[in-house]
Amino acid sequence: MKFFPQPIVWSSPRTVTAIVVLALLAMLPIIAAAFDASYYVSLTTRILIYALAAIGLNLILGFGGMVSLGHAMYVLLGAYAVAIPASHGVTSGFTQLAIAISSTALLAAGVGAVSLRTTGIAFIMITLAFAQMLFFGAVSLKDYGGDDGLTVAARSSFGAFDLSNNVTLYYAAFIAVLVALYLSWRAVLSPFGLVLRGSKANARRAIALGHPIFQYQLVAYIASAVVCAVAGVLLANLTLFASPSYGAWTVSGELIVIVILGGLGTVFGPVVGAIILLALEEALPTLIEHVLPDYKSNWMLLLGLFIFVVALVLKHGVFGSLKSRSP
């Protein structure tokens, strides 16, 4: 069986970009160690985690045309699936992952089944509403920190190895991203993906042809939620903390920004989008400090403008603007 679901055009700008980015990511901890800059390992771990969540969102947003403004709730769920068991002394990563994935799949099945009855703006709003519900639910967990969130005493352990080492955690996130990329690549091109993309391109026609698109959308929605939950598991491990703020609607907004920034409807776009957005959030304060030291803390102003401009002019995203084939 072929390993790649479609022939690779090695000379296309997209392929080259993807390979270079992945190669750099693969080597980053080594480079960071050489320059004694371990801070960049955890920064890049965060980037990978956001990329993973965005890959999940992209599945429905980029390929299914479902604009969910509530996907941060699954990141939240994943993080709490680590933090709450950990607070009871359960640090097994397998258990935590199992809890994260099963509870997310269950919740997403319910939320998806209700939300997918609506389309367009109503879908955006109802997903937002469900995320708010979970957010307030987390706030109300007084035994688990309530508003303030709760710290995670120890990172997850997976039998022989655990994530306590920063570099191990980095590679766990990196591998999760690779796996998610590969699986979504396959899924998008598969018969399932064809129907999903068809339902985005023209839902009415897809139904008239005989495709019960609701089922496809629901399955995609659940899968995308589960990917976000895995990102949440990793995030709790990185920050050793879980808080309702992980599920804030602004986080859902950021995930959308990442997907668009990278390029809607491209498999690799979310990785590029996450790198750009998080690097920007990191760099803007420093940049402003050099020019207007007094306004260092007001970098969000520029970020807001940046997002506005992206929405206005960047139709295909950064990665999406690259040619998929060589000329």
Partner: peptide, 30 residues
């Protein structure tokens, strides 16, 4: 499906053809 090729439009139809298996929940092969 405007952003599809002509072939993919027709393929979408072929995969829903009458009497063909009732679903397309195949995620692996292109």
């Amino acid at each position: 499906a405007k952003e599809f090729s002509a072939l993919d439009n027709v393929l979408l139809a072929v995969n829903a053809r009458a009497g063909h298996k009732a679903h397309n929940f195949q995620f692996w092969h292109n």
